[in-house]
Amino acid sequence: MTDIRPAQGTHFWFMSLIVPSPVGFDSYRRCGHFTPDPGMTRHDAFELLLAAVKEQSPELRTHAVVISFDVQPNQL
């Protein structure tokens, strides 16, 4: 049987963010997979992924606060 799923990166990540709103806070969740460059640190991955999230979600560009982040190998 041929696998028709697209190839995934070597690592899975997720990020939870909050943004102030007129009635409190709005929460957002973003996740995905990627393959880090050789020598990349967790901090490098966080900065790279946060920049990508903000690029793709204009509402998160100015006042978003990350409340959780994780990156793990994408193999069970």
Rank of each mutant, 00 (worst) to 15 (best):
R5Y: 14
P6I: 02
A7L: 15
T10M: 11
H11Y: 03
H11K: 04
W13Q: 03
F14A: 08
M15D: 01
M15T: 03
M15H: 00
M15L: 06
S16A: 04
L17Q: 07
L17T: 10
L17E: 02
V19F: 02
V19T: 04
S21G: 05
S21F: 02
G24D: 15
G24V: 11
G24N: 11
F25W: 07
F25A: 06
D26R: 13
D26H: 09
S27I: 00
Y28A: 02
Y28K: 01
Y28S: 07
C31V: 00
G32W: 14
H33M: 13
H33V: 10
H33T: 15
F34L: 12
P36C: 12
P38D: 00
G39Q: 07
G39W: 10
T41Y: 03
T41P: 13
D44M: 14
A45C: 15
A45P: 12
F46R: 08
E47A: 03
E47S: 03
L48C: 06
L48M: 13
L50C: 15
A51E: 03
A52M: 13
K54Q: 14
K54I: 02
E55C: 12
Q56H: 00
S57R: 00
E59T: 00
E59C: 01
R61P: 03
T62K: 01
H63P: 00
H63K: 09
H63R: 11
A64Y: 02
A64F: 05
V65C: 12
V66D: 07
V66G: 06
V66H: 01
S68A: 10
S68V: 03
D70K: 14
D70F: 07
Q72A: 07
Q72M: 08
P73T: 06
